[in-house]
Simulated scan of single mutants.
Amino acid sequence: MTSSRRSFLVLTGLSTLAVAGCGTASGSGGVRNTRTLRYQGQAGQVNPPELAAALGYLGDLKLDWVGNTISGPQDIQSAASGQIDFGGAFNGAVVKLASRKAPIKAVVSYYGSDKYAYSGYYVAEKSAIRQPRDLIGKKVGMNTLGAHAEAMLDIYLKKNGLSRAEAEQVERIVIPPVNTEQSLRQRQIDVAVLGGILRDKALATGGVRKLFSDFELRGAFSAGTYVLTERFIKQNPETVRTFVTGVGKALDWSRTTPRDEVVAKMTEIVAKRKRNESADALKFWHSYGVSAPGGRIEEQELSVWSDWLAERGDIKSGQVSVSDLYTNEFNKSHTKAGS
């Protein structure tokens, strides 16, 4: 999946969300276990819940598509306010929203980085940029600030010995993903962050060189999770269990099934849902990038971003209890001792 779902600086201006009493599909009162989950999708893409539904892993639980999301932060904010039942975003955005007292909980990972699905930081083939320190004074183009791409850049610079003051001299420029490659070739920027189809297209054209990637920097890791409100979870435990387990099974299926078969299934899903969209991008799909079996969440997948946000001054150290921000309780796609 692409990095377009990563923007979350919009959350900076959010006041404390008074969502504890907001409505959900389950209404008020005791346990209801709704059989329908409202959600937002992405044009031309098939997310893990949609794949799970098509494979029969959700049983009689239905997904109710209410439109397409414009970003991960918008998606989880909509979930927090009860406009939809689940939303997904970069884990840094999840931590950021939780810091605003939104009563949300991450329940399953849904995208990440691996040897197939990764974001690369590319320079022109003949660029003089060869090492981290060469980036001082240079422009790096990315889809948004304060999210996945900038976090990886900061980690890369820090890991290679640049001080915070030196790192701040690396200019970060917001550029729409579809224009990033062109901006690099026209020398409007010195480094382009590219992933998915846009990365593959640039590599096929040639003339670019990879400086580093998030996969090379951190290895395989899950980077984003689906969240639900604590209230929804309390009122719909069986629904949540079906949803989380089904998504986990779909992730495992996508990882163990021949790629051509996965792409064929996704193409079939897009054709059947009739949303006036193109399935052409699916031919470039390789992986969701989720490293853990069943999409189980590891604490460090959230704590690394909590630490990064605190270092930036976006949140206070200890402001978010990461251990309380996620649960694997409902994920029965794989069992783990002590869970």
Rank of each mutant, 00 (worst) to 15 (best):
Thr2Glu: 06
Thr2Val: 04
Arg5Asp: 13
Arg6Pro: 01
Ser7Asp: 13
Phe8Tyr: 11
Leu11Phe: 05
Gly13Arg: 04
Leu14Ile: 05
Leu17Ser: 12
Leu17Pro: 12
Leu17Trp: 04
Gly23Phe: 10
Asn33Val: 06
Asn33Arg: 12
Pro48Asp: 09
Pro49Met: 10
Glu50Met: 11
Ala52Ile: 10
Gly59Arg: 09
Asp60Asn: 10
Leu61Trp: 14
Lys62Trp: 11
Trp65Asn: 15
Ser71Pro: 07
Ser71Asn: 10
Gly72Ala: 09
Asp75Leu: 03
Ile76Thr: 08
Ser78Ile: 06
Ala80Met: 06
Ala80Pro: 13
Ser81Glu: 10
Ile84Pro: 10
Ala89Lys: 03
Gly92Pro: 04
Ala98Thr: 02
Ser99Arg: 01
Ser99Phe: 01
Arg100Gly: 01
Ala102Pro: 03
Pro103His: 03
Ile104Asn: 01
Tyr111Asn: 12
Tyr111Pro: 07
Ser119Phe: 09
Gly120Phe: 02
Ala124Asp: 12
Arg130Lys: 15
Pro132Glu: 13
Gly137Val: 12
Lys138Asp: 11
Gly141Pro: 02
Met142Gly: 06
Met142Thr: 05
Met142Arg: 04
Thr144Leu: 00
Ala147Ile: 02
Met152Arg: 11
Met152Asn: 10
Ile155Lys: 08
Leu157Ser: 08
Lys159Asn: 15
Glu168Val: 05
Gln169Lys: 15
Pro177Met: 03
Gln188Ser: 07
Ile189Phe: 13
Val191Ala: 14
Ala192Thr: 01
Val193Leu: 05
Leu194Ile: 05
Gly195Glu: 03
Asp200Trp: 03
Lys201Gly: 08
Ser213Met: 06
Glu216Phe: 02
Glu216Gly: 14
Arg218Pro: 00
Ala220Phe: 03
Val227Cys: 00
Phe232Asn: 02
Asn236Thr: 07
Thr245Arg: 12
Ala250Arg: 10
Trp253Cys: 08
Met266Ile: 07
Val270Leu: 13
Ala271Ser: 15
Lys274Phe: 14
Lys274Asp: 15
Arg275Phe: 11
Ala281Tyr: 11
Phe284Ile: 00
His286Phe: 04
Val290Ala: 13
Ala292Ser: 09
Ile297Leu: 12
Glu299Val: 06
Glu299Met: 03
Ser306Ala: 15
Trp308Ala: 12
Glu311Phe: 02
Glu311Pro: 02
Ile315Asn: 00
Ser321Met: 01
Asp324Lys: 10
Leu325Gly: 01
Tyr326Met: 00
Asn328Ile: 05
Phe330Asp: 04
Asn331Phe: 05
Thr335His: 15
Lys336Trp: 10
